[in-house]
Design a protein around this nucleic acid. Structure first.
Ligand SMILES: [Mn+2]
Ligand SMILES: [Mn+2]
Ligand SMILES: [Zn+2]
Ligand SMILES: [Zn+2]
Lengths: 168, 168
DNA sequence: CATTTAATTGAAATTAGTTGTCAAAAGAGC
DNA sequence: GCTCTTTTGACAACTAATTTCAATTAAATG
């Protein structure tokens, strides 16, 4: 990874930032538990999809999951990925992130709720948590006579990478 | 409109709420000015699209615009609506609102920036403005080494309409 | 007003992402 | 292993949006 991509270095901070959103990696047995908790059968395809979500990049598309799992199970179908991602999302084991009309991205739902800020130049996604904003959203809902169920907060901007600051 | 759909009445407020986001209706000459400002030719299709956006419902889909303009110009094509809405959006005369993977909705960009809260039961969309949240978004961006360009904040919940409170 | 020219149009094809269908394959309980 | 039900992959279908292209039209020019 290019050092210039790391904002805290550009800002001259002394220590690397703690990753804001903590993810405790899962093991094989966790995958099985997740699948059985949903009342579904454990299959190699489903195990592969969870394994793929659990390692490597965090916000992946169905396409990316498909490609990754296909390495191990070459005759897996697209539909299986979409179907299982949908189930996981319904049961909140996975969170769907939709960035501006593009393909949906998926991540294993971490303990802490968070939102995202995306670089419009390089596509880098940074996670953040802001309890003040969360609280204010509740207030806005009440003021308008709503009971809040969920929200989508996506920030877009230009990140600290010098490549992303080109004026063109 | 059903009285029970109006949150301020349910909350027992004395006066109807001022519409938070003010929209000064445009006239024919404004449409022409908008089109010419973009360096485009004035056509009856484009005039019809702007007229449609200017009257009636605020957050409309391309489909809805197409249907409305088709009444007057029955042989207008879909592509014309999409093309012009895209141009208008690029030039910020129109704002695209995307609610959860559905078809994009469009509105003439009003003077004041605002966000939306949508009822997950009846689909009603209410506009709001919260400068505190806007400010906090800026701070979040800076903290993460970003220069903020824009954001998407969509709240979802259950509105004041009794029909929307059914526990089913 | 007529001529010219480049922009715009509608129809249809195309794309991207996702969902539905269905017969064959494969888990899970016995 | 046998049975029953779920799950699967292939492929069709679907939705929203975009692209292509020949015909039409706005508008600049004289
Ligand atoms: Mn995330
Ligand atoms: Mn609005
Ligand atoms: Zn960047
Ligand atoms: Zn409602």
């Amino acid at each position: 990874m290019n050092k210039s991509e790391i904002p805290h270095l550009l800002r001259g901070d002394q220590n690397p930032p703690e990753k804001l959103i903590v993810r405790e990696p899962l093991v094989i047995d966790d995958f099985k538990r997740i699948i059985r908790d949903m009342g579904l059968k454990v299959t190699k395809q489903r195990m592969g999809i969870l394994k793929s979500l659990n390692q490597g990049r965090v916000h992946v598309t169905a396409q990316e999951v498909f490609e990754e799992v296909s390495q191990e199970y070459p005759d897996m179908g697209f539909a299986t990925v979409y179907r299982f991602l949908r189930k996981l999302t319904e049961k909140n084991f996975v969170t769907e992130v939709r960035l501006g009309g593009q393909a949906a991205r998926y991540e294993l739902t971490p303990k802490q709720h968070h939102d995202h800020i995306t670089c419009v130049r390089c596509g880098r996604i940074v996670e953040f948590q802001n309890l003040e904003i969360e609280q204010l959203q509740e207030e806005v809902a009440v003021e308008n006579g709503f009971r809040l169920t969920h929200h989508v907060l996506e920030l877009y901007g230009i990140c600290g990478d010098p490549n992303c600051h080109q004026t063109n």
